[in-house]
């Protein structure tokens, strides 16, 4: 059974239909990517799955549990954590306090120190700047912090919305390396990206989203080789 199963998800903004009944699934241990252009409905998909925006129709099952109507803050406690688009770290808190907020859903505080050390090992820059106000970090550092903050909640499924947005090419490579790393450590990943080439290269499976519908799906390699994807998303 799939870890995350989305069936016929429909989302409207007022009278405008943003998602026209999409279905996809993510299996334990996979990296799954949704690619698509601006306005295709990628962020809408991510936010409605995690319960941040209301759904018109469809159902979502996570870890064998129906979460269609579960509020966002409870979904997080079930093990689904999202790194939102634009990172949305807490600008006024320090790096350390942001990581502390990431562990908010963890009731047992005994592992906190270990988790924190693991984050600082994975992201040495965050360790150097642990007492700095997060709003003063560079874009790349903020992305690292957003990822570190999400990992602090021990997600079974980590969802990343455009993690490479606005980063230099060097940092983009680094972010994708880290995603592969996190996945290798046993966390299932659902990724949304405009950078189709890089994301398909690390994905087990992928879906193409266009105007609120899924138009194509397959393994990462299949989609990277598909004429349609090449033409529309890989620049020829």
């Amino acid at each position: 059974m799939a870890m995350l199963e989305v069936k016929n998800l429909e989302v409207y903004y007022g009278v405008i239909c943003a998602l026209k009944g999409i279905s996809f699934e993510v299996n334990q241990g996979e990296i799954v990517t949704l690619i698509g252009a601006n306005g295709a409905g990628k962020t809408t998909t991510m936010q409605s799955v995690v319960g941040l925006i209301p759904k018109r129709g469809g159902s979502i099952t996570f870890d064998g549990r129906d979460i269609t109507k579960t509020p966002c803050h409870k979904i997080v406690h079930l093990g689904m954590t999202q790194v939102p688009e634009g990172r949305r770290i807490f600008q006024e808190l320090t790096v350390y306090e942001n990581l502390l907020m990431g562990a908010y859903s963890i009731k047992d505080k005994s592992g906190f120190k270990n988790d924190l050390d693991a984050i600082y090992t994975r992201f040495p820059r965050l360790h150097e700047r642990k007492n700095q106000i997060a709003g003063t970090l560079s874009g790349g550092e903020q992305q690292m912090l957003a990822m570190g903050r999400a990992i602090m909640s021990h997600p079974k499924l980590l969802m990343l919305d455009e993690p490479s947005m606005g980063l230099s090419p060097l940092l983009v490579d680094q972010v994708f390396e880290i995603i592969k790393d996190i996945n290798r450590d046993g966390t299932t990943v659902l990724l949304v990206e405009q950078n189709a080439g890089k994301s398909l290269a690390i994905s087990d499976r992928a879906y193409v989203l266009e105007n609120g519908s899924i138009v194509l799906s397959g393994t990462g390699a299949e989609l990277a080789a598909s004429e349609m994807v090449k033409k529309a998303y890989l620049g020829g």
């Binding site: 941040l52 509020p71 803050h73």
Partner: peptide, 13 residues
């Protein structure tokens, strides 16, 4: 600071 991000941390707004 950010209601949405707070919810994503598991905070009951």
């Amino acid at each position: 600071e950010d209601k949405g991000a707070a919810q994503l941390m598991g905070i009951n707004v």
